[in-house]
């Protein structure tokens, strides 16, 4: 391969891996939005919490990874449940801005709790997946990247199956489609709301653990949750397929833009590029690739 093409493919591959984690977190985000029409600004903090809890259980409690993972899942489910019960349920029927603001407040609280307990330094995950680089046609891919990509795809598949075949999953889709009808068919909408938050927190925690394995974690991991917005806007706010495709696309896009434009703008393009893309999408196709277009009739 020519050096130019090699550089390009290297960027695409790395972007694809990061994008798969975006997709996973975006899945959690869309889940909440679809079921409860709440825009969750604390998604990144769920990622953060998951990563730190897992790290804490592994390093300080000396528990093997598989168990630590399960404990993290249980913790995230409880966190999601508490958030839904204590904060979102009293606000059902309140204006959008109130609900948005409460998730922002939640984000602040969770972030400062993490800082209080674990400080702001970068913490390195103990090696769970091997780090050896694999070479394929000259493209260097660390093994941990492959594991991350694989796990992300695996979890997405699990959730897809869950929505398609399980009773609760179908009930969730019904609720997202039409709350009143779902309720009249005997589905407890309140329970579905709670389950959505639980699953979303758990999915985000998985994302946090995966990304922690690649980079190590510190408090800026919470910004990861904000990158989810470009992904879900690209895919359409209420589409699960859209979230996955949007996540992958944003991962690749930000890596490519970072790789090619950093020299012109003095670095850090990767951090801002997704948001430029976001504004452009909002201007030309506000409901994204797969989102439901709101049609208003008087």
């Amino acid at each position: 391969m020519s050096p130019g093409l090699l550089y390009f493919s290297q960027l695409v591959v790395t972007g694809l891996v990061i994008g798969s984690v975006y997709a996973l977190v975006a899945l959690g985000f869309v889940l909440i939005y679809k079921a409860t029409s709440v825009l969750n600004f604390a998604q990144g903090e769920f990622v953060l919490m998951g990563a730190y809890i897992c790290l804490w259980v592994i390093v300080d409690l000396q528990i093997p990874f598989v168990w630590a993972f399960l404990i993290t899942m249980v913790f995230s489910v409880i966190l999601g449940l508490l958030v839904e019960r204590l904060m979102l349920r009293p606000l059902i029927g309140e204006p959008i801005i109130t609900v948005i603001m409460v998730t922002i407040g939640l984000a602040t609280v969770l972030k400062s709790i993490v800082t209080l307990f674990w400080g702001t330094q970068i913490k390195v995950f103990p090696q769970i997946f091997p780090q050896e680089p694999l070479r394929f046609q000259g493209i260097v891919v660390s093994e941990v990247y492959l594991w991350t990509f694989g796990s992300a795809l695996f979890f997405m598949a699990v959730f897809a199956a869950f929505f398609k075949y399980s009773r609760v999953g179908i009930a969730m889709r019904a609720t997202a489609d039409d709350q009143q009808v779902a309720q009249s068919m005997g589905i407890s909408v309140k329970r579905i709301f709670a389950i959505s938050w639980c699953i979303s927190a758990a999915v985000s925690a998985v994302g946090g653990i995966l990304i922690g394995n690649i980079n190590g974690i510190n408090i800026t991991l919470a910004d990861f949750g904000l990158k989810v917005f470009p992904a879900v806007i690209l895919g359409g706010l209420d589409s699960i397929v859209g979230a996955i495709i949007g996540g992958l696309a944003i991962g690749i896009l930000e890596n490519l833009m970072g790789g090619y434009l950093d020299i012109y703008f003095g670095g850090g393009v990767k951090e801002v590029a997704p948001f430029v893309v976001l504004v452009v999408i909002l201007m030309i196709k506000p409901y994204g690739l797969f989102g439901t277009v709101e049609i208003e009739r008087v």
Binding site: L39, I96, I97, I100, L226, F229, P230, I233, L237, F275, V276, L278, V279, L282, P286
Partner: peptide, 11 residues
């Protein structure tokens, strides 16, 4: 509403 919040956040 929601979309505008995201757009201004991007800003």
């Amino acid at each position: 509403g929601l979309y505008l919040a995201i757009a201004t956040m991007a800003a």
